[in-house]
Amino acid sequence: MIVGYFMSLTLADVKRIAYLARIEVSETEAEDYLRQLSGIFELVEQMQAVDTTGIEPMAHAQDVVLRLRPDSVSETDRRGDYQAVAPQTEAGLYLVPKVIE
């Protein structure tokens, strides 16, 4: 019944995924994730048993075409309001650690 595309995750895979997702994980957490994600992927694996040749992928429920709007300014300037909820700002700019030395 279960056709194996999924070869089972390794601890190295989990660490790579965590890195791509920008989520810091400890060694113990990585082992927990390995166990849990493997269980979920076993469930997901049932998909591979069905032949989908010639089926169009469905991205959205209603096959709508994205609307276009006139290329004009529609938003008012609310920088102050939006930056009020930011962790760190200065002179209207968002502050982050230095990226380029």
Binding site: V25, A86, P87, V96, P97, V99
Partner: peptide, 23 residues
Amino acid sequence: GVRYGYRAPEYGDLADMYGKTRA
């Protein structure tokens, strides 16, 4: 952790800030 919401209290560089904030 840049524009709104939680930011980790301690971090090194930008990547570390992302990783810790999200963790």
